[in-house]
Design a protein around this nucleic acid. Sequence first.
DNA 1: TCTGGGGTCCTAGGACCC
DNA 2: TCTGGGGTCCTAGGACCC
Length: 436
Amino acid sequence: MFALIDCNNFFVSCEKIFNPGLEGKPVVVLSNNDGCVISRSNEAKAIGIPMGIAIHKCKDLIALHNVRLFSANFQLYGDVSNRIMSILKDFCSEMEIYSIDEAFLNLKNMKINDLQKYGQEIHDRIYRWTGVPVSVGISPTKTLCKAANEYLKVTKASPGLRPPSPKGEGILIDKCMTLNTPEKADAALSALDVGDIWGIGRKYSEFLNRYGMYRAIDLKNADDRWVRTTMSVVGQRTVFELRGTPCIELDAYPEAKKMIISSRSFGRYVTTKEELKESVACYTARAATKLRSQGSVCGIISVAIMTNRHRANLKQYYGTTHCSIPTPTGYTPDLVKHAFKCLDEIYKPGYKYKKALVTLSSIVPEDSGKINMFEQDYAFEKNNKIMKAFDDINKAWGKEKIRIGAMGETQPWRAKREMVSPRYTTVWEEILVINN
DNA sequence: TCTGGGGTCCTAGGACCC
DNA sequence: TCTGGGGTCCTAGGACCC
């Protein structure tokens, strides 16, 4: 048996912890640049604000219902997430952190008499200790756990009936769903759209619909050979998992990232190379920090710059190139130099740039000894020490407290975050004040 | 005015190896 | 009459996830 714990409306729930006045109100958290909706309270779902919509498209709804808006506050969400994960670790040491708001537990070696009660306990403790409500799905496969969670979201109505709201708009009403028998699993799969299943996205959903499969149960009963040839081994695995045969193991120790991306849209258009350089330096530094934190170095860096693809009336341009680094490195100044070389190749004046993107790849462990034989790199040790100090300072004193000059001073191109809440749990100055 | 950011896996085809 | 067999690596494209 596996359990999947999924935080409900996670970012919004984090905002509510220190702001109980939000309870019962429509609340929305926005993406970078306060652009689109990435988390909604139940009340916001109920008045019909869709996931992912550009916020300016629902101005009227927001005004009409006095929807509370928040810029994304990932320092807060990340910290709350860590707290929840550590609570879960107490329940079961074999755990996979699947995303910022989800984790799988492997219940294989545990003696649990009443699974439903166990799930309920997980919910209760996390809610009591952090204020975040979670839902719990328990079943023999990870895909069925996902289905159990999905089922909790879509069924306020009696089992087997579709709720009135469209797919993914469901509102959670219960805490734990256990699909530990084929009968229970079938009942849930009969109530779910095929597209609700983990691993079935938009394309496969449309494809399956064309062959008359609309419900998850239809996919579960599909012909093996047909699935294998049309949906590859990935689809095949999904089908087996729906039947209760585990094919996807718990991944408790995820491997180092093979690719690290850092990109942001700008708060306003950028036209000069100088400002592009600042942003590219910033994104490179951010990616390099991540790279070092997993003990890796990278051999390829690529840079892309682009205009606003949503503006048909503007001249469009997407420029990208990459360069390989003879001696794989995690040293920020060197990476920035290479990034600038890329930028020199792709920059064209006369465009209004909206976004830049830096990717590190060919990632290998720092100690893999892949040293360039033509270059005696005496600086290697020294640079490592510098970066170590660099990272330690930023860890102790806050992000980008120490940074390289190329990142610029005022950074006027930075994204807007006009409605950000305090970082209640990670910055002393922003701790909640009860009474002044 | 205004539309996010960061990842993974699989397949097919070409180049190349012995 | 006749043209091997088996393999790796790389890239692009397509699908998916949160």
